[in-house]
Amino acid sequence: MKNNIEIVNLKCGGCANSIKKGLLNIEGVSEVSVELETSKVTVEVANEEILSEVKKKLSSMGYPEIGDANTVIHKAKSFVSCATGRMSTEE
């Protein structure tokens, strides 16, 4: 089942790269795309339980869903995820 999740703190291709990599490591996620312009993550998941896991993973990486708490810790984690994503695209 395909789902769209609108997130906060998405800034660049480095963020998108980290998100794709992180979510594809979850068993039951078969496809991930990230739209920078709309801050939308589209995922193909096996079921609702996996979707819940995807949302938790996004939040733990610093990209909570719109409407969820966006704390200073989320913002700091997204900065680190962004930097990591940028470094992995330069290799």
Rank of each mutant, 00 (worst) to 15 (best):
S18Y: 04
I19Y: 03
I19W: 05
I19M: 11
K20Y: 05
K20F: 04
K21F: 02
K21E: 00
G22W: 03
G22D: 04
L23T: 01
L23N: 08
L24D: 00
L24V: 03
N25W: 05
N25D: 09
I26F: 09
E27H: 13
E27I: 07
E27R: 15
G28W: 08
V29G: 06
S30M: 02
E31N: 15
E31K: 15
E31R: 09
V32N: 11
V32S: 12
S33F: 08
S33G: 05
S33E: 15
V34N: 05
E35V: 03
E35K: 00
E35D: 15
L36W: 02
L36A: 05
E37C: 00
E37P: 13
E37V: 01
T38R: 11
T38P: 00
S39P: 00
S39I: 01
S39H: 05
K40N: 12
K40P: 00
K40V: 15
K40G: 02
V41N: 07
T42L: 03
T42G: 09
T42Q: 12
V43K: 08
V43M: 12
V43Q: 08
V43P: 07
E44F: 12
E44A: 15
V45G: 06
V45E: 07
V45R: 02
A46Q: 15
A46P: 01
N47A: 04
N47D: 15
N47V: 02
N47H: 05
E49I: 03
E49Q: 12
E49L: 10
E49P: 07
E49H: 10
I50V: 15
I50L: 11
I50M: 08
S52F: 11
S52C: 04
S52E: 13
E53P: 02
E53M: 13
V54A: 10
K55P: 06
K55W: 11
K55L: 07
K56Q: 12
K56L: 11
K57Y: 00
K57P: 05
K57M: 14
L58S: 07
L58E: 01
L58V: 06
S59Y: 04
S59R: 11
S59T: 09
S60P: 01
S60R: 03
M61E: 06
G62V: 01
G62P: 02
Y63D: 03
P64A: 00
P64E: 04
P64L: 07
P64D: 06
E65M: 14
E65G: 04
E65Y: 06
E65A: 12
I66H: 07
I66D: 02
G67K: 10
G67Q: 06
G67N: 06
D68A: 14
D68Y: 07
A69C: 01
A69L: 14
A69N: 00
N70L: 06
N70E: 05
N70A: 12
N70C: 15
N70R: 11
N70F: 00
V72A: 14
V72S: 14
H74Q: 10
H74D: 13
K75S: 09
K75Y: 07
K75W: 05
A76L: 13
K77Q: 13
K77A: 08
K77H: 08
S78D: 08
